[in-house]
């Protein structure tokens, strides 16, 4: 791990305070290396989405920094950022008429700036979505569309994949498929940052190396844990919060 320490692909969240009036005073610190998998947990309204948007550079922080290797995320251009980090929202697109293949090709263009069709085909094959290659996104079920969006995120960015409750609307099989894809990303050396309420499925799939608990309104407000992501432990910690 040590030789990767100052590579481009590290993610360091330093004394980050989020731009949201309910989340004032909550400081977040976390450090992740390539291949790390961090789960972000917290009650509703704890700031999970706000944190993810801030990590992605889509929302300015109140204070603090998000460092991607040597670069501050907010100093990168949107294009540059897109090559190094990607994002999956909780709802798949429902009004996009482009096909699965076109979506993967778009991700390659966003990430590399150029298109290698054979790479797109290989990626669809590897992620098990090639059977739907010519189907339109708006004709797929939520579960299928979300798998496509995760595959899209996986090929778009070199370093980091950030996901905001990607399994929220999926059935059991859909969840397992998405989480399995995340394990693949991790094995390829990408950092995974996943906000979820679905502790059991994520723990069962394995691979989680860190977890971050968000507790607005409490001094310090967040705890960064290394290892020990057990649903029982996490649930007990969340339950013990005074609301």
């Amino acid at each position: 791990m040590n030789e990767r320490q100052d590579s481009l692909g590290n993610l360091a969240i330093k004394a980050l305070e989020l731009m949201h009036r309910d989340l004032e005073g909550m400081k977040i610190d976390a450090h992740l290396n390539p291949g790390d998998f961090m789960v972000v947990v917290g009650r509703n309204g704890a700031g999970k989405s706000t944190l993810l948007h801030t990590i992605m550079g889509l929302l300015s922080p109140l204070r603090g920094q998000v460092m991607l290797g040597p670069d501050d995320v907010f100093s990168l251009s949107p294009r540059e950022r897109a090559t190094r980090m990607s994002f999956v929202t909780s709802t798949p697109p429902r009004h996009a008429g482009i096909t699965v293949r076109e979506t993967i090709e778009l991700a390659l263009k966003a990430g590399r700036g150029e298109l290698d069709t054979s790479e797109a085909e290989a990626h669809m094959e590897a992620t098990g979505i090639s059977v739907w290659a010519d189907r339109r996104l708006d004709r797929l079920s939520d579960g299928m569309a979300q798998r496509v969006m995760v595959a899209r995120a996986a090929i778009q960015s070199k370093h980091i994949v950030v996901l905001d409750e990607p399994t929220a609307f999926l059935d059991v099989v859909g969840k397992e498929d998405v989480l399995e894809q995340l394990r693949q990303c991790k094995e390829n050396g990408q950092i995974i940052v996943l906000a979820t309420h679905d502790l059991e499925s994520v723990a069962a799939c394995g691979g989680v190396t860190h977890w971050l608990q968000l507790r607005p309104g409490i001094s310090g407000g967040s705890t960064f844990h290394q290892g020990g992501f057990e649903p029982e432990t996490v649930r007990a910690v969340l339950r013990s919060e005074k609301r």
């Binding site: 889509l58 897109a82 482009i98």
Partner: peptide
């Protein structure tokens, strides 16, 4: 068409 947030995250 993939959504505003997704589009922004794609540059």
């Amino acid at each position: 068409m993939l959504g505003a947030l997704t589009a922004r995250s794609m540059g």
